[in-house]
């Protein structure tokens, strides 16, 4: 274990900044291609809109991956904000709502990392991040998009959000980060080297 001083742990190297922004932008581009995923569950959502919550966790991936890789305050929220800004700039359907969502989703994931003082990159932390992001996003959607939905349906939607946040953001995000580490692309980052360690040895 290498020792690092407090400032080294929070000071952003240029590569940290570029990687946070790059992860956000890359997902912004990939998201444009993900619309196809919604057609997979199309029949379900046409009859029961809240089922879209099943895919909600995918949108928080930039935050959890950036947080797992860079492990510095602001990485998760920064990446999510870039992805949301990109979506908004390219004419996404929710306009400024997208940026509010980005801040809340990134903020939820950020909160999970902050609770460990940015020291841990484990599955439980990633899952907690996904769950917190899902909760905040649900509050926002309930307020801004679905205020007239009955409470019963809203609670079902919350359930979908939480499951999706835990699995598609938390577990999948952690697995994706590990797959990235195995490619060597995360070698400039301590987190990447730790995650790759098991695979390399």
């Amino acid at each position: 274990m290498t020792t690092t001083t407090g400032t080294a742990r929070t000071r952003y190297r240029t590569i940290d900044l570029v990687v946070v922004a790059g992860i956000g932008a890359a997902f912004g581009v990939a998201f444009l291609g993900y619309g196809a995923l919604y057609s997979l569950i199309g029949p379900l959502t046409a009859a029961f809109k809240p089922a879209e919550g099943l895919l909600a966790g995918i949108w928080f991936l930039p935050a959890v991956i950036a947080g797992l890789v860079v492990r510095k305050p602001g990485a998760a929220i920064g990446a999510e904000l870039i992805a949301a800004t990109l979506e908004m700039m390219l004419g996404g359907q929710w306009g400024w709502g997208t940026v509010v969502s980005g801040l809340l989703q990134g903020g939820g994931v950020e909160l999970a990392f902050a609770l460990t003082a940015y020291r841990r990159s484990t599955v439980p932390v990633a899952v907690l991040g996904g769950v917190l992001a899902a909760s905040l996003e649900w509050v926002w959607e309930r307020f801004a998009y679905y205020p007239e939905m009955s409470w019963g349906f809203a609670i079902i939607m919350l359930g979908f959000f939480l499951v999706s946040g835990a699995l598609l953001c938390g577990a999948l995000g952690w697995a994706a980060t590990r797959a990235l580490a195995a490619t060597g692309a995360l070698d400039p980052f301590p987190a990447g080297r730790e995650l790759a360690g098991a695979d390399r040895a």
Partner: peptide, 16 residues
């Protein structure tokens, strides 16, 4: 997506 992230991360190292 994984390939795009690898591409982005490698590019980020050079860009930084």
């Amino acid at each position: 997506t994984l390939a795009l992230l690898v591409d982005t991360l490698r590019g980020a190292e050079q860009q930084a």
